[in-house]
Design a protein around this nucleic acid. Structure first.
Lengths: 199, 199
DNA sequence: ATTAAATTAGAACGACCGTTCAAATGTAAG
DNA sequence: CTTACATTTGAACGGTCGTTCTAATTTAAT
């Protein structure tokens, strides 16, 4: 029995980590507060010392996840010089960093009438983040004469949904690297349709 | 109070229709047997007269939905003469007939450890149906010299996930026809990359 | 040593859920 | 009318869940 001081921040962090894993694995509804309690080694009541309720805990995790995804992208973006390079980089960033299972759990929460409107609103705001990132790459490509003039909004919807669809495959495989060719091929095919000159 | 004979088949049908709508709207877990009971106007216990349990009722609906989707496609497929035409036809068929919300509820059930393995297996078998349909169009296109020789399996995965991703947009809009251009554009872009001659 | 505040545990609650079951009711046939 | 069967109901059960509350424990300051 080693005496340890309270470390409330640590407890908070442990709870968040385990909640993240459980929500990703089992979805929102099927993850109970007791599941989170047992996995993180703190009592059920203690979860409520750190978080107002299950719903707000989830929204916090979804926000954190998406913000980290975006911050990571902003970090590596400057390492690509052309819009084309950025798209291949983005495809890999999505494949390896986008938290598809957690955000699917978010759809579950959002479609539940019992969920508070504020939470639903916050989750919808998150969905905009990747789309904004996609759009700005297209815009840069057009401005630099790399891509044709065209309907950037439509391109964003098209390639955004494609990457979203491809992400569903991450459920099937453990080794994400096997999906790399598929993600890259999607970029190649799409960019070929909007490039100014066929290189 | 008009005297009516029992009509058990009608009851069964009404229950199935309302269960379909509720599962599609609220997902699997968030739809309770009582919800279905109230919506269909029959007592909770009566649901169990017609169906073994909630899970089997859902699997039945998912199978029915996918089989109807496939049967409808087989009906209209002969009206298209080339593989290219078939793809545009398929895109519209998916947009208007694929039951995305219900099948998303199926993923919910499948990822729940409490679900019976037989049910999960049946749901996974359903996911194969559209992929098989996609693959056979590609094969036809190759055999008729319409598409290049190439990795048909990869094409199937790529365009399959693209359509799957686009289907997520059906949640956003009530009027599906606004999505037609997007679906068609996806087909145009993809086929351009595998066509033998640029028409 | 005392006190006040922060942290943690665990019991308890009310609500809901899937399922079962016995009883009631309607139908058709003898 | 009686009987047998099909259909439908509604109460009840055991279980789980999100949340609340009280008390215990630890920490830090006096």
């Amino acid at each position: 029995m080693n005496k340890r001081r309270y470390d409330s921040d640590k407890a908070r962090q442990v709870i968040m980590e385990n909640a993240f894993l459980l929500f990703s694995e089992k979805g929102y509804t099927q993850t109970s507060v007791e599941d989170i309690s047992k996995a993180s080694g703190y009592s059920k009541g203690h979860i409520y010392y750190h978080f107002e309720n299950k719903e707000k805990l989830f929204v916090l995790l979804a926000q954190k996840s998406m913000r980290e995804w975006f911050a990571k992208w902003l970090e590596k973006e400057p390492s690509f010089s052309t819009a084309t390079e950025k798209w291949y980089g983005m495809a890999m960033h999505v494949l390896y960093n986008y938290q598809t299972p957690l955000l699917k759990a978010g759809q579950e929460l959002a479609s539940d009438p019992k969920s508070s409107p504020e939470s639903v609103k916050k989750l919808f705001e998150l969905a905009v983040i990747p789309m904004d990132s996609y759009r700005s790459i297209f815009q840069e490509g057009v401005e630099h004469g790399e891509f044709k003039e065209g309907n950037v909004e439509e391109w964003t919807a098209l390639l955004g949904t494609w990457l979203g669809g491809l992400c569903q495959l991450t459920n099937t495989t453990q080794d994400l690297s096997t999906l790399e060719p598929l993600f890259k091929q999607a970029i190649t095919i799409f960019l070929a349709s909007i490039k100014k000159r066929g290189d």
